[in-house]
Computed example of a mutant assay.
Amino acid sequence: MILIRKILFPFAAIYGLITGLRNWFYDIGIFKSAAFDVPVIAVGNLSVGGTGKSPQIEYLLRLLIPNYKVATLSRGYKRKSRGFVLADENSDAQILGDEPFQFHRKFPEVAVAVDADRVNGITKLLELAKPDVILLDDAFQHRKVKAGFYILLTTFHELYIDDFLLPTGNLRESRRGAKRADIIVVTKCPKDLSQQQQNAIRMKMRLESHQQLFFSFIDYDDFVFSDTDKINIDIIRNKKKVLIAGIAKPKPFFEHLKSKDDVILEFSDHHHFSESEISEIVKKANGNPIVTTEKDYVRLKGRKLENLFYLPIKSAFVSGSYDFDGAISQYVSGRQFS
Protein backbone atom coordinates (compact mmCIF):
# COMPACT_ATOMS: atom_id res chain seq x y z
CA MET A 1 0.00 0.00 0.00
CA ILE A 2 2.85 2.41 0.87
CA LEU A 3 4.59 1.62 -2.43
CA ILE A 4 1.37 2.23 -4.40
CA ARG A 5 0.91 5.59 -2.67
CA LYS A 6 4.44 6.61 -3.59
CA ILE A 7 3.84 5.58 -7.21
CA LEU A 8 0.75 7.81 -7.23
CA PHE A 9 2.79 10.90 -6.28
CA PRO A 10 2.26 12.59 -9.72
CA PHE A 11 -1.50 12.44 -9.13
CA ALA A 12 -1.02 14.04 -5.71
CA ALA A 13 0.85 16.89 -7.41
CA ILE A 14 -2.02 17.38 -9.87
CA TYR A 15 -4.56 17.20 -7.05
CA GLY A 16 -2.57 19.77 -5.10
CA LEU A 17 -2.50 22.12 -8.08
CA ILE A 18 -6.27 21.86 -8.56
CA THR A 19 -7.15 22.38 -4.88
CA GLY A 20 -4.54 25.12 -4.55
CA LEU A 21 -6.01 27.05 -7.51
CA ARG A 22 -9.50 26.64 -6.08
CA ASN A 23 -8.43 28.06 -2.72
CA TRP A 24 -6.55 30.91 -4.39
CA PHE A 25 -9.64 31.83 -6.43
CA TYR A 26 -11.62 32.02 -3.18
CA ASP A 27 -8.86 34.02 -1.48
CA ILE A 28 -8.76 36.68 -4.20
CA GLY A 29 -12.53 36.80 -4.69
CA ILE A 30 -12.94 35.18 -8.11
CA PHE A 31 -14.98 32.46 -6.41
CA LYS A 32 -17.50 33.98 -4.01
CA SER A 33 -18.23 32.88 -0.44
CA ALA A 34 -21.53 33.59 1.30
CA ALA A 35 -21.33 35.21 4.73
CA PHE A 36 -24.15 35.37 7.26
CA ASP A 37 -25.05 37.69 10.12
CA VAL A 38 -25.48 34.79 12.56
CA PRO A 39 -22.32 33.39 14.22
CA VAL A 40 -21.13 30.38 12.20
CA ILE A 41 -18.45 28.02 13.57
CA ALA A 42 -16.94 25.50 11.13
CA VAL A 43 -15.33 22.34 12.51
CA GLY A 44 -13.26 20.18 10.19
CA ASN A 45 -9.89 18.79 9.21
CA LEU A 46 -7.37 18.70 6.39
CA SER A 47 -7.20 14.90 6.31
CA VAL A 48 -9.78 12.25 5.50
CA GLY A 49 -11.78 11.00 8.49
CA GLY A 50 -11.08 9.92 12.01
CA THR A 51 -10.04 13.17 13.70
CA GLY A 52 -12.88 13.32 16.23
CA LYS A 53 -15.24 15.87 14.68
CA SER A 54 -18.39 14.49 16.33
CA PRO A 55 -17.02 14.64 19.91
CA GLN A 56 -15.80 18.17 19.19
CA ILE A 57 -19.21 19.26 17.90
CA GLU A 58 -20.81 17.75 21.01
CA TYR A 59 -18.34 19.62 23.22
CA LEU A 60 -19.39 22.87 21.55
CA LEU A 61 -23.06 21.99 21.97
CA ARG A 62 -22.62 21.44 25.69
CA LEU A 63 -20.76 24.73 25.94
CA LEU A 64 -23.28 26.82 23.99
CA ILE A 65 -26.70 25.30 24.73
CA PRO A 66 -27.12 26.90 28.18
CA ASN A 67 -26.92 30.41 26.71
CA TYR A 68 -27.88 30.18 23.03
CA LYS A 69 -30.32 28.61 20.61
CA VAL A 70 -27.97 26.35 18.66
CA ALA A 71 -28.24 24.57 15.30
CA THR A 72 -25.96 22.09 13.57
CA LEU A 73 -25.61 21.61 9.82
CA SER A 74 -23.97 18.53 8.32
CA ARG A 75 -23.79 17.02 4.86
CA GLY A 76 -25.44 13.85 6.15
CA TYR A 77 -22.94 11.40 4.70
CA LYS A 78 -24.49 8.18 3.31
CA ARG A 79 -28.04 9.24 4.17
CA LYS A 80 -30.84 8.03 1.90
CA SER A 81 -32.62 11.38 1.74
CA ARG A 82 -31.77 14.33 -0.49
CA GLY A 83 -31.64 18.07 -0.19
CA PHE A 84 -32.35 19.97 3.01
CA VAL A 85 -33.78 18.00 5.94
CA LEU A 86 -34.51 19.38 9.40
CA ALA A 87 -34.64 16.65 12.06
CA ASP A 88 -37.96 15.88 13.71
CA GLU A 89 -39.60 13.05 15.68
CA ASN A 90 -39.76 10.88 12.54
CA SER A 91 -36.06 11.20 11.69
CA ASP A 92 -33.62 8.30 11.82
CA ALA A 93 -30.06 7.53 10.75
CA GLN A 94 -31.12 6.70 7.20
CA ILE A 95 -32.79 10.09 6.78
CA LEU A 96 -30.14 12.22 8.52
CA GLY A 97 -26.97 10.12 8.45
CA ASP A 98 -25.53 8.54 11.59
CA GLU A 99 -23.68 11.51 13.10
CA PRO A 100 -26.47 14.11 12.69
CA PHE A 101 -28.97 11.60 14.07
CA GLN A 102 -26.67 11.06 17.04
CA PHE A 103 -26.72 14.83 17.67
CA HIS A 104 -30.52 14.82 17.38
CA ARG A 105 -30.91 11.96 19.90
CA LYS A 106 -28.55 13.46 22.47
CA PHE A 107 -29.53 17.11 22.11
CA PRO A 108 -33.25 17.30 21.25
CA GLU A 109 -33.30 21.04 21.93
CA VAL A 110 -30.86 21.62 19.04
CA ALA A 111 -32.04 22.22 15.47
CA VAL A 112 -30.18 19.50 13.56
CA ALA A 113 -30.19 19.83 9.78
CA VAL A 114 -28.48 18.19 6.82
CA ASP A 115 -27.81 19.61 3.38
CA ALA A 116 -24.90 19.08 0.98
CA ASP A 117 -25.41 22.71 -0.11
CA ARG A 118 -24.29 24.51 3.05
CA VAL A 119 -25.41 27.94 1.79
CA ASN A 120 -28.92 26.66 1.20
CA GLY A 121 -28.81 24.77 4.51
CA ILE A 122 -27.91 27.87 6.53
CA THR A 123 -30.52 29.93 4.70
CA LYS A 124 -33.21 27.36 5.50
CA LEU A 125 -32.12 27.07 9.14
CA LEU A 126 -32.32 30.83 9.58
CA GLU A 127 -35.80 30.79 8.09
CA LEU A 128 -37.19 27.76 9.94
CA ALA A 129 -35.29 27.48 13.23
CA LYS A 130 -33.91 31.01 13.76
CA PRO A 131 -30.80 29.89 15.71
CA ASP A 132 -28.44 32.21 17.57
CA VAL A 133 -25.41 30.23 16.39
CA ILE A 134 -24.77 27.53 13.77
CA LEU A 135 -22.16 24.76 13.97
CA LEU A 136 -20.97 23.46 10.60
CA ASP A 137 -19.84 19.84 10.80
CA ASP A 138 -16.97 18.80 8.48
CA ALA A 139 -16.96 22.08 6.55
CA PHE A 140 -13.34 23.26 6.61
CA GLN A 141 -13.03 22.81 2.83
CA HIS A 142 -16.56 24.03 2.08
CA ARG A 143 -15.56 27.51 1.03
CA LYS A 144 -18.87 28.50 -0.51
CA VAL A 145 -19.67 29.52 3.07
CA LYS A 146 -17.52 32.09 4.85
CA ALA A 147 -17.68 30.95 8.46
CA GLY A 148 -16.90 33.46 11.16
CA PHE A 149 -14.75 31.03 13.14
CA TYR A 150 -12.78 27.94 12.06
CA ILE A 151 -11.69 25.01 14.25
CA LEU A 152 -9.22 22.63 12.61
CA LEU A 153 -8.71 19.14 14.05
CA THR A 154 -5.64 16.94 13.59
CA THR A 155 -4.80 13.74 15.45
CA PHE A 156 -1.81 13.33 17.75
CA HIS A 157 -0.47 10.30 15.87
CA GLU A 158 -1.13 11.71 12.38
CA LEU A 159 -0.49 15.45 12.45
CA TYR A 160 -1.36 17.22 9.22
CA ILE A 161 2.08 18.81 9.28
CA ASP A 162 3.59 15.31 8.73
CA ASP A 163 1.08 14.25 6.06
CA PHE A 164 0.85 14.69 2.29
CA LEU A 165 -1.85 15.23 -0.31
CA LEU A 166 -4.13 12.48 -1.60
CA PRO A 167 -3.56 9.88 -2.96
CA THR A 168 0.04 9.72 -1.69
CA GLY A 169 -1.06 10.87 1.78
CA ASN A 170 -4.40 11.61 3.45
CA LEU A 171 -4.72 15.38 3.04
CA ARG A 172 -7.72 16.83 1.24
CA GLU A 173 -5.80 20.02 0.56
CA SER A 174 -2.36 21.49 1.12
CA ARG A 175 -1.07 22.03 4.66
CA ARG A 176 -1.23 25.76 3.84
CA GLY A 177 -4.99 25.49 4.32
CA ALA A 178 -4.38 25.37 8.07
CA LYS A 179 -3.79 29.12 7.96
CA ARG A 180 -7.55 29.62 7.75
CA ALA A 181 -8.03 28.13 11.23
CA ASP A 182 -8.63 30.31 14.27
CA ILE A 183 -8.11 27.35 16.60
CA ILE A 184 -6.22 24.11 15.96
CA VAL A 185 -6.98 21.15 18.21
CA VAL A 186 -4.63 18.17 18.35
CA THR A 187 -7.07 15.36 19.14
CA LYS A 188 -6.74 11.83 20.54
CA CYS A 189 -3.73 12.76 22.66
CA PRO A 190 -2.55 10.72 25.65
CA LYS A 191 -4.24 12.03 28.80
CA ASP A 192 -0.84 12.62 30.37
CA LEU A 193 0.65 14.52 27.42
CA SER A 194 3.50 16.53 28.91
CA GLN A 195 4.07 20.25 28.50
CA GLN A 196 7.35 19.40 26.78
CA GLN A 197 5.53 17.30 24.18
CA GLN A 198 2.95 20.05 23.69
CA ASN A 199 5.69 22.63 23.15
CA ALA A 200 7.45 20.40 20.61
CA ILE A 201 4.26 20.11 18.56
CA ARG A 202 3.65 23.84 18.90
CA MET A 203 7.11 24.60 17.49
CA LYS A 204 6.54 22.14 14.66
CA MET A 205 3.20 23.69 13.69
CA ARG A 206 4.56 27.23 13.26
CA LEU A 207 1.23 28.83 14.06
CA GLU A 208 0.06 32.13 12.64
CA SER A 209 -0.07 35.01 15.12
CA HIS A 210 -3.88 34.87 15.34
CA GLN A 211 -4.07 31.12 15.99
CA GLN A 212 -4.47 29.21 19.25
CA LEU A 213 -3.42 25.57 19.78
CA PHE A 214 -5.10 23.11 22.15
CA PHE A 215 -4.68 19.42 22.97
CA SER A 216 -7.59 17.07 23.61
CA PHE A 217 -8.17 13.41 24.39
CA ILE A 218 -11.07 10.96 24.12
CA ASP A 219 -12.71 10.49 27.51
CA TYR A 220 -14.61 7.19 27.70
CA ASP A 221 -17.71 6.79 29.87
CA ASP A 222 -17.64 4.51 32.93
CA PHE A 223 -20.62 2.55 31.55
CA VAL A 224 -21.91 1.04 28.33
CA PHE A 225 -25.59 1.73 27.65
CA SER A 226 -28.61 0.25 25.95
CA ASP A 227 -31.96 1.98 25.74
CA THR A 228 -33.02 0.33 29.01
CA ASP A 229 -29.88 -0.72 30.86
CA LYS A 230 -26.25 0.10 31.60
CA ILE A 231 -23.21 -2.00 32.59
CA ASN A 232 -20.06 -0.82 34.33
CA ILE A 233 -17.07 -0.74 32.02
CA ASP A 234 -14.99 -3.01 34.29
CA ILE A 235 -17.73 -5.65 34.23
CA ILE A 236 -18.24 -5.54 30.47
CA ARG A 237 -14.49 -5.82 29.86
CA ASN A 238 -14.47 -9.17 31.63
CA LYS A 239 -17.52 -10.54 29.82
CA LYS A 240 -17.36 -12.52 26.61
CA LYS A 241 -18.85 -10.24 23.96
CA VAL A 242 -18.93 -9.08 20.36
CA LEU A 243 -17.30 -5.70 19.63
CA ILE A 244 -18.47 -3.91 16.50
CA ALA A 245 -17.13 -0.72 14.92
CA GLY A 246 -17.94 0.90 11.60
CA ILE A 247 -15.90 4.05 12.15
CA ALA A 248 -12.62 5.45 10.88
CA LYS A 249 -9.66 4.27 13.01
CA PRO A 250 -11.52 2.03 15.50
CA LYS A 251 -8.43 0.58 17.19
CA PRO A 252 -8.69 2.71 20.40
CA PHE A 253 -12.32 1.60 20.85
CA PHE A 254 -11.38 -2.07 20.57
CA GLU A 255 -8.32 -1.68 22.79
CA HIS A 256 -10.36 0.03 25.51
CA LEU A 257 -12.91 -2.80 25.78
CA LYS A 258 -11.55 -6.07 24.47
CA SER A 259 -10.68 -9.24 26.35
CA LYS A 260 -9.08 -12.39 24.95
CA ASP A 261 -12.39 -14.20 24.25
CA ASP A 262 -14.09 -11.37 22.38
CA VAL A 263 -15.21 -11.45 18.77
CA ILE A 264 -14.11 -8.28 17.01
CA LEU A 265 -15.94 -7.14 13.87
CA GLU A 266 -14.60 -4.14 11.97
CA PHE A 267 -16.52 -2.46 9.15
CA SER A 268 -15.94 0.57 6.94
CA ASP A 269 -16.79 4.05 8.21
CA HIS A 270 -20.56 4.84 8.14
CA HIS A 271 -21.26 1.22 7.16
CA HIS A 272 -24.90 0.26 6.50
CA PHE A 273 -25.43 -3.22 7.90
CA SER A 274 -27.16 -5.77 5.67
CA GLU A 275 -29.62 -8.37 6.94
CA SER A 276 -27.05 -11.12 6.38
CA GLU A 277 -24.51 -9.19 8.45
CA ILE A 278 -27.04 -8.73 11.25
CA SER A 279 -27.73 -12.48 11.21
CA GLU A 280 -23.99 -13.19 11.37
CA ILE A 281 -23.59 -10.81 14.34
CA VAL A 282 -26.43 -12.57 16.18
CA LYS A 283 -24.83 -15.94 15.48
CA LYS A 284 -21.41 -14.82 16.73
CA ALA A 285 -22.89 -13.18 19.85
CA ASN A 286 -24.75 -16.36 20.83
CA GLY A 287 -26.62 -14.47 23.55
CA ASN A 288 -23.59 -12.55 24.83
CA PRO A 289 -23.49 -8.73 24.91
CA ILE A 290 -22.86 -6.80 21.70
CA VAL A 291 -21.00 -3.53 22.27
CA THR A 292 -20.54 -0.88 19.60
CA THR A 293 -19.73 2.78 19.20
CA GLU A 294 -22.36 5.43 19.71
CA LYS A 295 -22.28 6.29 16.01
CA ASP A 296 -22.85 2.66 15.03
CA TYR A 297 -25.55 2.22 17.66
CA VAL A 298 -27.91 4.63 15.89
CA ARG A 299 -27.65 2.43 12.77
CA LEU A 300 -27.91 -0.90 14.59
CA LYS A 301 -30.70 0.03 17.01
CA GLY A 302 -33.96 -1.70 16.07
CA ARG A 303 -32.20 -4.34 13.92
CA LYS A 304 -33.21 -7.39 16.02
CA LEU A 305 -30.00 -7.38 18.05
CA GLU A 306 -30.48 -8.37 21.68
CA ASN A 307 -28.08 -7.18 24.38
CA LEU A 308 -26.90 -4.28 22.19
CA PHE A 309 -24.90 -1.63 24.06
CA TYR A 310 -22.83 1.42 23.09
CA LEU A 311 -19.90 3.20 24.72
CA PRO A 312 -20.31 7.00 24.94
CA ILE A 313 -17.25 9.20 24.48
CA LYS A 314 -16.49 12.85 25.06
CA SER A 315 -13.78 15.23 23.96
CA ALA A 316 -11.82 16.65 26.90
CA PHE A 317 -8.83 18.98 26.99
CA VAL A 318 -5.45 18.01 28.40
CA SER A 319 -5.23 21.62 29.61
CA GLY A 320 -6.52 25.05 28.62
CA SER A 321 -10.23 24.25 28.46
CA TYR A 322 -11.00 27.61 30.09
CA ASP A 323 -9.14 29.42 27.30
CA PHE A 324 -10.85 27.35 24.61
CA ASP A 325 -14.30 28.00 26.07
CA GLY A 326 -13.47 31.68 26.41
CA ALA A 327 -12.39 32.00 22.77
CA ILE A 328 -15.64 30.41 21.56
CA SER A 329 -17.82 32.44 23.91
CA GLN A 330 -16.04 35.66 22.99
CA TYR A 331 -16.61 35.04 19.27
CA VAL A 332 -20.27 34.14 19.65
CA SER A 333 -21.13 36.96 22.07
CA GLY A 334 -19.21 39.46 19.94
CA ARG A 335 -21.07 38.44 16.80
CA GLN A 336 -24.38 38.51 18.67
CA PHE A 337 -24.05 42.19 19.42
CA SER A 338 -22.01 43.41 16.44
Rank of each mutant, 00 (worst) to 15 (best):
F156R: 04
A93H: 09
A12D: 07
F84S: 10
Q330R: 15
V242Y: 07
N67R: 08
K295S: 11
N286L: 00
E173G: 09
L166C: 04
V186F: 03
D162A: 05
H104Y: 07
S338L: 07
K295G: 15
I183E: 05
L136P: 13
K191S: 12
E173V: 09
V43E: 11
K284Y: 07
S329L: 15
F36C: 04
K78Q: 10
N286Y: 10
Q141Y: 04
I313F: 04
L166T: 02
I218V: 10
H157V: 00
F337T: 10
L96V: 02
Y77L: 02
D27Y: 07
D262E: 02
V40Y: 13
F217T: 07
I122P: 00
K106I: 06
K251W: 02
A147E: 12
F140A: 02
N307C: 03
D222F: 06
M1K: 11
T293R: 05
D117M: 01
T292M: 08
L63T: 05
F25S: 03
K284E: 10
A181K: 11
Q330Y: 11
Y310C: 01
K179P: 05
K124E: 14
K179A: 12
D37Q: 02
Y220N: 15
I2L: 12
K204E: 06
G326R: 10
F36D: 01
S47F: 00
P289A: 04
S321T: 13
R82Y: 04
M203C: 08
I28L: 05
K258R: 14
V186S: 13
V332P: 00
V133E: 10
T72Q: 04
Y26S: 07
K304M: 04
V186H: 13
S319N: 07
S33A: 14
A200P: 03
S333T: 14
P252Q: 13
H210I: 06
N170K: 11
G326Y: 14
G287S: 09
P131G: 07
L128G: 08
K80W: 08
D92K: 02
P312T: 11
P131Y: 14
T72A: 09
T155L: 01
P108Y: 10
V263K: 10
K179E: 11
I201W: 13
G302R: 09
V85M: 11
E294M: 02
F225K: 09
G320K: 03
R118V: 03
K80A: 01
G52L: 06
L207R: 01
P167A: 03
D163N: 01
S274I: 03
A113I: 01
L300Y: 12
L305S: 05
E208A: 15
I4S: 15
Y77H: 05
K239L: 12
H210S: 11
S209E: 06
F156M: 08
A116H: 06
Q197R: 15
T51M: 08
P10G: 06
Y322V: 00
A71F: 08
Y15F: 13
V318K: 03
G246W: 03
F309S: 02
E158H: 14
V282Y: 13
V133N: 12
F103R: 05
R75V: 00
A87F: 06
S321E: 15
V282F: 02
A316C: 10
F156N: 00
